[in-house]
């Protein structure tokens, strides 16, 4: 299944990935609106959170707005989503993202935009 593979050891917190992601999908440079989440930790370490395409959220969705595409990527059909956020509650790693007040959640679809801008090669799209 196609997904974004992260290597936290390599991350130095440049946040280029966050920036490119939110700009691509929300037309603004806003870490809240990035599908990849970079969480600073102790001693200059970072935790990277992005969808592993595990599919748990798909089972939770009451309108079947979440489906798995042929490449194995979990896709959200916004036309069907009624914004209940059950998927956000279900996601075991917090990768289904939501900004309070926004109608629907969003997630990483392994597009690879962030991979291209990471100077540390901490990100990789794998099949």
């Amino acid at each position: 299944m196609k997904h974004l593979k992260t290597d936290q050891e390599k991350c130095r917190g440049h946040l280029h990935c966050v920036s490119v992601c939110s700009k691509l999908y929300f037309k603004e440079d806003n870490p809240e609106k990035s599908a990849i989440w970079v969480v600073p930790g102790e001693g200059g370490k970072y935790t990277l959170i992005a969808c592993t395409q595990c599919g748990e959220c798909v089972a939770e969705c009451p309108t079947m707005a979440l489906t798995v595409n042929p490449q194995g990527v979990v896709m959200l059909n916004r036309a069907l989503c009624i914004g209940c956020l059950a998927c956000v509650g279900r996601c075991p790693i917090g990768a289904m993202r939501h900004v309070p007040g926004m109608a629907t959640p969003f997630k990483c679809i392994a597009c690879g935009a962030c991979v291209k801008v990471c100077p540390e090669k901490a990100l990789e799209t794998v099949l």
Partner: peptide, 12 residues
């Protein structure tokens, strides 16, 4: 809406 969603999410 934000508080409504966040309260719901906490319970989810």
């Amino acid at each position: 809406l934000a508080t409504l969603q966040q309260t719901g999410l906490k319970l989810h």
